[in-house]
Every structure is written in structure tokens, then in C-alpha cells.
Amino acid sequence: MQEISRVLGRVDEIRRKMVDDESKVLFDARLRFMFDKDFYEFSKAMFSLERKWIIPYLDKTYNFDNDYSEIVLWGCGKDGRHVRSLLARSKYASIPISFVTNNMSQWGQTHEFEIDNLNVVRTPIISPEELRSRINNAVIIISSIAYRCEIMDQLGSYGAKMEQIVYPFTYFGYRLYGERETPQYFDLFEANSNEIFLDVGANGGGTATDFVKWCGEKGYKAIYSFEAHPRFIDITKEYFKNNNLHDAEVVPIAAWDKKDTLDFSISLANGNGGCHVMESANLNSNDWLDASVKVPADTIDNVLSGKPATFIKMDIEGSEYKALVGAEKTIKKYKPRMAISIYHKPEDIVMLPYIISQYNPDYKFALRQYHSGMWETILYCF
């Protein structure tokens, strides 16, 4: 905590290293979230950025050309406004959209918000009876966590079919979410010849394929995929074999700040699945599955033993800071470009760029958001 307080005194310096306005907007929003934990305020900043979102669930589930003609959001609180903002930044912006609520004092009103400096989105708030009259033409998104069972019963009494109803908030997070169109981790840079890629947190090997596509005709020199869990090590090796990836090595350790043995856990905490290492597993908690798996850990510097790296991708569920400490020599000597997940811990927004700046003050930064929730914020370093 003392170190975080010290680093907060360098916030202005870190912000000046952000190379564009999008990065500064996201940095400021993440910094506020570190203190207020207000997702809605973060999402307002995120949706203020002028770009489109893809919404995979709607894309694959509904045909708005033939089967449905409108979208109705049941609930116009913070969750409803978040979903409305997402729709306004997608291809569904041109489809008629309404809020519906059982609160009769809001019927006939219009909710307004700015989508950018030029345009205001106006969304009517209708009554359930008005929805009933056109129920067959609507996709209904339940954008309220409270009373969701009662809302489902009410929709059923109106004749709504289950396939018309979208409930965004599933146990594992958002079913209804937006994705950025551009590829995560490989969005900001163009590949150089003979790239040497450190995929820290391989999780099956798919990112290595994205790396190979990114390199294109320039090719690459080597791939080192760090994966600690025995099950995922085998999956990654099999993936490399099936996809004919040459010069691709699975490094069977967890990237850390020292040589150690750690607990590897599959977490369902807070409704979000994730796999990560811990110095000490909480074996009494129901949040953990598989907490007894012990895995070896070591530093990137020790693994490479002086060999170069040109590009480091790091997505290891909150262990990024420890892994960066263990990569100090590599970063200082070779100055690799990096794409690092910066959303797992609120304080990472300052701690990660700070430590990288300590290794080399010439590093510049950019931030990009790839998910319409709180996840998938990536720090690019170059």
C-alpha cells in the first residue's frame, strides 16, 4: 500500500506518456475506478470514444431484417443505460429502441444522453401494456438485475417466447457484451522481421496463432509460450502440433519475480472464471476449484538466460506486476514492445506503467479497451 501511495505521486508523469486521446480517456477512467469502483462511470467514459462495437450474441441469435423490428430494454437504471450506450455504438443503433418499466411515473418520458459532442440519443420510456401490443416484433433485453424472475413471468403472461428474451447478466458475467473490431494484443504495432514472441499466459495456444497471422509474410523467429497448469500445457502442445507452428516452445512455468512453487487455481470468484497462480491458496473458500495444483514458477530473465525477446504479450490474471519484476533484465536490454493486461487489479493502471518506466524512461504507452465490461483493457508499451 505504501508503494501504491508513492506511485500515485507520479500519475501526471505516467499520463504524459500516453500517446493519444483515447489512451488518456481510458487512463483517467481506470484511475477513477481505482478509487470509486463505479463501473457505470467507467462505461460512460469508454462509450464516449468514437468507435463501433460488435455484439456477438445479437449477431448470431437474431435476424432484424425479417424476424424482429425493434429492441426493448426492460429497466432504465444504470444497467439499462449501459446496454443502451453499447447499442448506440453498434450496428443496432439504427433499429428502434425503447425502455420499458413498471414505474408509471416514467411512462411517456424520454431518456437522453450524449453519444459524442455532436449527437444526443433519445430513447422513449414505454409502459408494459404498450410493449404487450407489439410483443411479437421485439427482442426484449432484461437490463435489470432486480426482479428479473418477476419480469420473466410478466413477459410470459404477454405471450413473449423465451427465444425473444435476452438476459445479459449470467453467472459468468455478461452474455450481452461488445467487442472491439481490431485484434487484441496486436492492434497497435506492425510486425518486424524475425519477431521473438513471449506469450505469457498461453491458455491453449490461440494467441500464438494470432501472432503468426500478425507477422504475415515477414515470418517470425521464435515463440515461447508460458503455461504453468499441466492440463493447459498438454493442450497448448497439441494445439501447436495441430496448427503446424514451427519454432514454438511451451515453457512449463508460471512467470514470477523469483524461482518458487505456487498454487495454481481456477477461480469462480465474483462470477468470473479465471485461472491464476497464488503464493497461498485459500483452501477453505468455495471460490476455488483445483486450488491444490502446485506449479513451478520462475522469472522470464532466468528462462531466457540472456536470449532476446522483441514482443511480450502478458495476460496472467493479476500476476503481471510480479512477472514484470522478473523480466527486468530482458526489458532493459532488449526494449521489447509489449501488450499487457491492465484490468485484473485496480492499482495496475499505475503500477504497471510505473515499473516499466523505471526500467526504461523512454517507453511510451497506449491503452485500448476490447470488452464493453471492465475486462480486456490492454496497455501497449513501445
Rank of each mutant, 00 (worst) to 15 (best):
1 M>H: 14
4 I>Q: 08
6 R>G: 11
8 L>V: 14
11 V>W: 07
15 R>H: 04
17 K>V: 00
23 S>D: 01
28 D>Y: 01
30 R>S: 05
31 L>R: 01
34 M>D: 09
34 M>P: 11
35 F>Y: 14
35 F>G: 07
37 K>A: 11
41 E>P: 13
43 S>F: 11
46 M>D: 05
46 M>H: 10
47 F>K: 02
48 S>D: 04
49 L>V: 10
50 E>R: 13
51 R>N: 09
52 K>H: 05
52 K>D: 08
54 I>S: 07
59 D>K: 11
64 F>W: 01
65 D>Q: 14
65 D>V: 09
67 D>L: 13
68 Y>F: 13
69 S>C: 07
70 E>Y: 13
78 K>W: 13
82 H>N: 12
84 R>T: 06
85 S>G: 11
88 A>H: 03
89 R>M: 07
91 K>F: 02
91 K>A: 09
93 A>R: 15
102 N>W: 12
105 S>E: 10
106 Q>M: 12
108 G>E: 00
109 Q>W: 02
114 E>V: 14
115 I>W: 07
118 L>Q: 14
118 L>F: 11
124 P>H: 08
125 I>S: 02
125 I>P: 00
132 R>W: 10
134 R>L: 05
137 N>S: 08
139 V>P: 03
139 V>H: 04
141 I>D: 02
142 I>P: 10
143 S>E: 06
143 S>Q: 08
146 A>P: 12
148 R>I: 15
148 R>W: 13
149 C>M: 15
149 C>D: 15
169 F>G: 04
171 Y>V: 12
171 Y>E: 11
175 R>H: 09
179 E>L: 12
183 P>A: 10
186 F>N: 01
187 D>R: 08
191 A>D: 00
195 E>F: 05
196 I>R: 06
199 D>R: 07
206 G>Y: 09
206 G>I: 07
209 T>A: 15
214 W>L: 10
216 G>A: 06
217 E>S: 09
218 K>L: 10
220 Y>L: 05
222 A>W: 00
222 A>C: 04
224 Y>Q: 08
226 F>G: 09
233 I>W: 02
235 I>N: 08
237 K>D: 06
239 Y>W: 06
242 N>E: 12
242 N>K: 14
242 N>W: 14
246 H>Q: 14
248 A>T: 05
249 E>Q: 12
250 V>C: 01
251 V>R: 07
252 P>K: 03
253 I>R: 13
254 A>N: 00
256 W>H: 03
257 D>G: 06
260 D>L: 02
262 L>D: 00
270 N>F: 11
272 N>H: 15
280 S>P: 08
291 A>N: 03
291 A>I: 04
292 S>E: 15
294 K>C: 00
296 P>L: 08
297 A>T: 06
304 L>W: 03
305 S>V: 03
307 K>T: 03
310 T>I: 01
310 T>C: 01
318 G>E: 00
319 S>G: 01
320 E>C: 01
323 A>G: 00
325 V>P: 14
325 V>C: 14
326 G>S: 03
330 T>N: 07
331 I>G: 05
334 Y>T: 03
349 I>C: 03
357 S>Q: 09
360 N>P: 05
366 A>E: 12
374 M>V: 13
380 Y>M: 09
380 Y>P: 12
382 F>K: 13
382 F>E: 15
382 F>R: 10
